[in-house]
Write a protein that binds this DNA or RNA. Structure first.
Ligand SMILES: [Mn+2]
Ligand SMILES: [Mn+2]
Ligand SMILES: [Mn+2]
Ligand SMILES: [Mn+2]
Lengths: 245, 245
DNA sequence: GGCAGAAATTAGTTATACCTAATATTATGA
DNA sequence: TCATAATATTAGGTATAACTAATTTCTGCC
């Protein structure tokens, strides 16, 4: 992908390209997404450090890319040497668009193509960069513009807006406080398979009955008062819930 | 995409990668496809020249890449300096796999997502490189393992085999010889829209009534003896037919 | 057989995006 | 306050895959 530099004359592929704006590269997309997640809802500055760990690359590479993102016109990030970055508006918009792509694709793979919920993340992680606006629009339409992906994550709207859902992890949930599962981390397929086997997914009602000292496990009642399961600390941190009235 | 070179230590993305073989790059895929098409059914050697024109890049770039493809282990092409290339078996297999991806994706976009037949090629041209084997398998299954794409092109089987259909262009069709449209070139969206408007697509019965000297136009009867249309030389070369019994 | 022109290759450059190693800056705690 | 540890930046290098310009090889024709 070393084209479109000085090469305004002849695009490498034939056919009229409808997309007007120059698309950001996969690498740029991934940095924007990383900053988006790491900066959190309060949109705090993110250290090169954190980005490097998140993307599993060196801090030198990160510094390099941050300088490019800041030098882009319009700038995608606001960058201050030695003091981290923040997404500028264009960068934030692009990050949210990629998140929309990711979650729509996940939902599509799950609902339309019958993928298991632990299989969708990996494929979406790649495809999110390469689908067109038309593809996005068509799969969204086919599924009736879904609001949530298979893991319970909210799908950003076309304008980038994302409903902020009030939520905490099971780890943070007080004992005996009944709660409903909002979403589950999609990063670890094994964890997802295990949770599914325990009957835990978005919508599941649960109550922490007891947590044992020194990092659990947690004894959790599923549903009204049916079964009980034991969840390790990592599992309780991967399940997000909202207290039920 | 400058990873996976000396970088055996830490893959850039988290998560266990199920794909075992190192995937070829988009550029490599495109070269293999170009050689595949240019060498034709008789699999003749292809000149750097032709590849450069087909991919709209310089011959220097082509020479460079051909040397890499030949140096790969196992070699993807058989290359002799100044005497063009031929696909080696691994290259041929990969080329056919990409063609399978392309045509399955086109069919999926058309049949499942409701794309018009002039819109599918561009999107498939990109996605063919990035879908997984699972995605391929799932869309194929969802559509009942289709044999042909929306333009009438045969979809290679999983083992790479492609039925060789007997066909000629309308340009080559003798006058008054009734024929059935097998396939239509998918490269030019405008042409596809025009042909669709004339009622011409895979399966259409037609007869050349007359061709006027000096590059046409051709007077062509559509169906049994309903309407007649005029087709320019480029159009008659874009429509492939098989004589009807 | 030799020569001109076409085709291909080599050489050197650019851009992206990674890397390691060396250096600089910032933050902390004695 | 100031030395040291943690962070970040710079400098220099690699690989991919394009480019232009210079050079070489091949081919067809006289
Ligand atoms: Mn989009
Ligand atoms: Mn998800
Ligand atoms: Mn495949
Ligand atoms: Mn086609």
């Amino acid at each position: 992908m070393a084209r479109e530099a000085k090469n305004s004359g002849s695009p490498r592929k034939a056919g009229p390209v409808s997309r007007p704006a120059a698309h950001s590269s996969e690498a740029v997309d991934d940095y924007l997404k990383a900053i988006f997640w790491l900066s959190g809802p309060e949109e705090r500055r993110v250290a090169s450090n954190e980005i490097a760990a998140y993307l599993r690359i060196t801090t030198a590479s990160v510094t390099n890319m941050l300088q490019k993102l800041a030098a882009a016109r319009p700038p995608l990030v606001s960058y201050q040497k030695h003091h981290g970055v923040q997404l500028a508006d264009p960068g934030k918009l692009r990050a949210r668009e990629i998140v929309r792509h990711h979650r729509l694709v996940e939902t599509f793979l799950h609902d339309v193509l019958g993928y298991a919920w632990d299989e969708v993340h990996q494929e979406a992680e790649r495809l999110e960069h390469f689908i067109s606006e038309k593809f996005e629009e068509r799969i969204a339409a086919k599924m009736g513009n879904p609001q949530f992906d298979p893991h319970g994550h909210a799908i950003p709207a076309l304008d980038g807006s994302m409903p902020q859902v009030e939520q905490m992890t099971v780890h943070q949930l007080p004992v005996r406080q009944r709660a409903r599962v909002v979403s589950v981390s999609d990063k670890d397929p094994e964890m997802l398979r295990y949770l599914a086997a325990q009957g835990i997914g978005p919508g599941t009602l649960l109550t922490v009955m007891e947590y044992l000292p020194f990092a659990g496990p947690y004894r959790v009642r599923i549903g009204r008062n049916k079964s009980e399961v034991l969840l390790s600390l990592p599992l309780t941190q991967a399940v997000y819930v909202a207290p039920a009235e």
